[in-house]
Amino acid sequence: MSQIFRRSTNTFTRATIFGAVFMLGLTVWAIDRLSRSDYVTRATQAREQPVPFSHAHHVGGLGVDCQYCHTSVEISSYANIPPTKTCMNCHSQIWSTSPTLEPVRASYRTNQSIRWTKVNDLPDFVYFNHSIHVNKGVGCESCHGRVDRMPLTYQVNSLQMEWCLNCHRNPEKYVRPREFITTMGYQPAGDQEEIGRKLVAEYKIQNARALTSCSTCHR
Protein backbone atom coordinates (compact mmCIF):
# COMPACT_ATOMS: atom_id res chain seq x y z
CA MET A 1 0.00 0.00 0.00
CA SER A 2 1.35 3.38 -0.93
CA GLN A 3 1.66 6.23 1.52
CA ILE A 4 -1.44 8.40 1.93
CA PHE A 5 0.59 11.58 2.33
CA ARG A 6 3.45 12.61 0.17
CA ARG A 7 6.71 13.74 1.69
CA SER A 8 6.06 17.37 0.79
CA THR A 9 3.04 17.38 3.09
CA ASN A 10 5.44 17.76 6.04
CA THR A 11 6.63 21.13 4.75
CA PHE A 12 3.08 22.17 3.94
CA THR A 13 1.91 21.33 7.44
CA ARG A 14 4.74 23.22 9.08
CA ALA A 15 4.03 26.23 6.91
CA THR A 16 0.34 26.30 7.79
CA ILE A 17 0.91 25.89 11.54
CA PHE A 18 3.50 28.63 11.45
CA GLY A 19 1.32 30.73 9.11
CA ALA A 20 -1.68 30.45 11.44
CA VAL A 21 0.06 32.81 13.84
CA PHE A 22 0.21 35.38 11.09
CA MET A 23 -3.35 34.68 9.99
CA LEU A 24 -4.55 35.27 13.54
CA GLY A 25 -2.50 38.44 13.77
CA LEU A 26 -3.90 39.62 10.47
CA THR A 27 -7.46 38.98 11.63
CA VAL A 28 -6.94 40.92 14.86
CA TRP A 29 -5.34 43.76 12.90
CA ALA A 30 -8.21 43.77 10.41
CA ILE A 31 -10.86 43.91 13.16
CA ASP A 32 -8.95 46.69 14.86
CA ARG A 33 -8.73 48.71 11.66
CA LEU A 34 -12.38 48.06 10.86
CA SER A 35 -13.62 49.19 14.27
CA ARG A 36 -11.79 52.49 13.83
CA SER A 37 -12.70 52.90 10.18
CA ASP A 38 -15.03 55.56 8.78
CA TYR A 39 -17.29 52.71 7.72
CA VAL A 40 -17.99 51.84 11.35
CA THR A 41 -17.76 55.31 12.93
CA ARG A 42 -19.74 56.80 10.03
CA ALA A 43 -17.27 59.70 9.87
CA THR A 44 -17.03 61.57 6.55
CA GLN A 45 -20.37 60.15 5.38
CA ALA A 46 -22.94 62.83 4.58
CA ARG A 47 -26.32 61.92 6.04
CA GLU A 48 -29.59 62.17 4.13
CA GLN A 49 -31.76 65.03 5.44
CA PRO A 50 -35.39 66.04 4.80
CA VAL A 51 -34.04 69.35 3.43
CA PRO A 52 -30.54 69.40 1.93
CA PHE A 53 -29.31 72.09 4.31
CA SER A 54 -25.89 73.44 3.36
CA HIS A 55 -23.61 74.77 6.07
CA ALA A 56 -21.19 75.68 3.25
CA HIS A 57 -23.74 78.13 1.90
CA HIS A 58 -24.98 79.59 5.18
CA VAL A 59 -21.70 79.72 7.10
CA GLY A 60 -19.03 79.78 4.40
CA GLY A 61 -20.99 81.79 1.85
CA LEU A 62 -23.14 84.16 3.90
CA GLY A 63 -21.01 84.33 7.04
CA VAL A 64 -23.82 83.50 9.46
CA ASP A 65 -22.36 82.77 12.89
CA CYS A 66 -22.90 79.26 14.32
CA GLN A 67 -24.77 80.74 17.27
CA TYR A 68 -27.34 82.50 15.12
CA CYS A 69 -29.06 79.10 14.89
CA HIS A 70 -27.35 77.04 17.60
CA THR A 71 -28.33 79.49 20.32
CA SER A 72 -28.08 77.26 23.37
CA VAL A 73 -24.51 76.05 22.85
CA GLU A 74 -23.04 78.41 25.46
CA ILE A 75 -25.55 77.75 28.19
CA SER A 76 -26.73 74.19 27.85
CA SER A 77 -25.52 70.66 27.36
CA TYR A 78 -26.72 70.52 23.78
CA ALA A 79 -26.29 72.86 20.83
CA ASN A 80 -29.89 73.06 19.74
CA ILE A 81 -31.09 72.35 16.25
CA PRO A 82 -32.91 75.59 15.47
CA PRO A 83 -36.71 75.62 15.42
CA THR A 84 -38.29 76.19 12.00
CA LYS A 85 -38.99 79.77 13.05
CA THR A 86 -35.25 80.50 12.81
CA CYS A 87 -35.17 79.27 9.19
CA MET A 88 -38.18 81.45 8.43
CA ASN A 89 -36.45 84.56 9.78
CA CYS A 90 -34.83 84.80 6.36
CA HIS A 91 -36.76 82.29 4.24
CA SER A 92 -40.04 84.10 4.67
CA GLN A 93 -38.61 86.43 2.05
CA ILE A 94 -35.67 84.61 0.49
CA TRP A 95 -36.26 81.51 -1.67
CA SER A 96 -39.80 81.73 -0.35
CA THR A 97 -41.21 79.79 -3.30
CA SER A 98 -38.42 77.23 -3.66
CA PRO A 99 -39.77 73.65 -3.82
CA THR A 100 -36.66 72.47 -1.93
CA LEU A 101 -37.77 74.49 1.08
CA GLU A 102 -41.37 73.28 1.02
CA PRO A 103 -40.81 70.97 4.04
CA VAL A 104 -39.62 74.02 6.00
CA ARG A 105 -42.69 76.07 5.09
CA ALA A 106 -44.95 73.08 5.75
CA SER A 107 -43.38 72.69 9.18
CA TYR A 108 -43.96 76.38 9.90
CA ARG A 109 -47.59 76.20 8.75
CA THR A 110 -48.50 73.00 10.56
CA ASN A 111 -46.31 73.40 13.66
CA GLN A 112 -44.87 69.94 13.06
CA SER A 113 -41.13 69.55 13.68
CA ILE A 114 -38.85 68.71 10.79
CA ARG A 115 -37.26 65.33 11.50
CA TRP A 116 -33.60 66.11 10.91
CA THR A 117 -31.19 63.21 10.98
CA LYS A 118 -28.71 63.42 13.81
CA VAL A 119 -25.19 63.50 12.41
CA ASN A 120 -22.94 63.60 15.46
CA ASP A 121 -24.50 60.95 17.66
CA LEU A 122 -22.69 60.02 20.85
CA PRO A 123 -23.65 56.85 22.73
CA ASP A 124 -26.29 57.46 25.39
CA PHE A 125 -23.87 56.56 28.16
CA VAL A 126 -21.74 59.60 27.38
CA TYR A 127 -22.92 62.75 29.12
CA PHE A 128 -21.40 65.26 26.77
CA ASN A 129 -21.96 68.93 27.59
CA HIS A 130 -21.46 71.58 24.92
CA SER A 131 -21.44 74.59 27.24
CA ILE A 132 -18.48 73.50 29.33
CA HIS A 133 -16.40 72.85 26.21
CA VAL A 134 -17.32 76.12 24.50
CA ASN A 135 -16.74 78.14 27.66
CA LYS A 136 -13.35 76.53 28.26
CA GLY A 137 -12.05 77.37 24.81
CA VAL A 138 -12.82 74.34 22.66
CA GLY A 139 -13.85 75.70 19.27
CA CYS A 140 -16.73 74.28 17.23
CA GLU A 141 -14.21 73.42 14.56
CA SER A 142 -12.08 71.32 16.92
CA CYS A 143 -14.75 68.59 16.99
CA HIS A 144 -17.00 69.37 14.03
CA GLY A 145 -14.32 70.30 11.49
CA ARG A 146 -14.69 72.83 8.72
CA VAL A 147 -18.47 72.95 8.77
CA ASP A 148 -18.25 76.01 6.52
CA ARG A 149 -17.09 73.72 3.74
CA MET A 150 -19.80 71.07 4.07
CA PRO A 151 -22.54 71.19 1.44
CA LEU A 152 -24.17 68.35 3.39
CA THR A 153 -23.24 67.91 7.01
CA TYR A 154 -21.08 65.00 8.02
CA GLN A 155 -19.20 63.91 11.09
CA VAL A 156 -15.50 64.60 10.78
CA ASN A 157 -13.98 62.71 13.68
CA SER A 158 -14.49 59.17 14.92
CA LEU A 159 -16.15 60.37 18.18
CA GLN A 160 -14.62 57.31 19.76
CA MET A 161 -13.35 57.51 23.31
CA GLU A 162 -9.70 57.47 22.28
CA TRP A 163 -10.41 60.55 20.19
CA CYS A 164 -12.02 62.38 23.14
CA LEU A 165 -9.05 61.43 25.30
CA ASN A 166 -6.58 63.01 22.86
CA CYS A 167 -7.83 66.36 24.09
CA HIS A 168 -8.74 65.41 27.66
CA ARG A 169 -5.12 64.32 28.16
CA ASN A 170 -3.57 67.33 26.43
CA PRO A 171 -6.10 70.20 26.31
CA GLU A 172 -3.31 72.75 25.69
CA LYS A 173 -2.89 71.34 22.20
CA TYR A 174 -6.44 72.25 21.20
CA VAL A 175 -7.91 75.13 23.22
CA ARG A 176 -8.25 78.61 21.73
CA PRO A 177 -9.27 82.01 23.11
CA ARG A 178 -13.03 82.21 23.72
CA GLU A 179 -13.52 84.99 21.18
CA PHE A 180 -12.52 82.57 18.41
CA ILE A 181 -14.84 79.74 19.44
CA THR A 182 -16.99 79.89 16.29
CA THR A 183 -14.15 80.89 13.98
CA MET A 184 -13.64 78.49 11.10
CA GLY A 185 -10.05 77.99 9.96
CA TYR A 186 -8.63 79.43 13.21
CA GLN A 187 -4.86 79.88 13.24
CA PRO A 188 -3.21 80.41 16.64
CA ALA A 189 -1.29 83.69 16.85
CA GLY A 190 1.96 81.98 17.77
CA ASP A 191 2.88 78.64 19.27
CA GLN A 192 -0.28 76.63 20.03
CA GLU A 193 1.21 74.79 23.02
CA GLU A 194 2.43 78.02 24.59
CA ILE A 195 -0.91 79.81 24.06
CA GLY A 196 -2.72 76.64 25.07
CA ARG A 197 -0.88 76.34 28.38
CA LYS A 198 -1.72 79.97 29.15
CA LEU A 199 -5.40 79.41 28.34
CA VAL A 200 -5.57 76.21 30.37
CA ALA A 201 -4.41 78.22 33.38
CA GLU A 202 -6.62 81.22 32.61
CA TYR A 203 -9.78 79.17 32.02
CA LYS A 204 -8.97 76.94 35.01
CA ILE A 205 -9.16 73.78 32.93
CA GLN A 206 -8.71 70.80 35.21
CA ASN A 207 -5.67 68.56 35.07
CA ALA A 208 -5.53 65.45 32.89
CA ARG A 209 -6.19 63.22 35.90
CA ALA A 210 -9.56 64.85 36.53
CA LEU A 211 -10.38 65.14 32.84
CA THR A 212 -9.75 61.46 32.23
CA SER A 213 -11.64 60.23 35.27
CA CYS A 214 -14.43 57.83 34.21
CA SER A 215 -17.14 59.87 35.89
CA THR A 216 -16.19 63.03 34.02
CA CYS A 217 -18.06 61.67 30.99
CA HIS A 218 -19.83 58.55 32.25
CA ARG A 219 -22.21 58.46 35.19
Binding site: S76, Y78, N80, I81, P123, D124, F125
Partner: peptide
Amino acid sequence: DMHDQPKYVPL
Protein backbone atom coordinates in the same frame (compact mmCIF):
# COMPACT_ATOMS: atom_id res chain seq x y z
CA ASP B 1 -28.70 48.72 23.70
CA MET B 2 -26.38 50.82 25.81
CA HIS B 3 -25.67 53.19 22.94
CA ASP B 4 -29.33 53.77 22.19
CA GLN B 5 -31.12 53.70 25.52
CA PRO B 6 -34.89 54.07 25.68
CA LYS B 7 -34.73 57.49 27.29
CA TYR B 8 -35.32 61.05 26.14
CA VAL B 9 -32.41 63.34 25.46
CA PRO B 10 -32.98 66.87 24.14
CA LEU B 11 -34.71 66.93 20.73
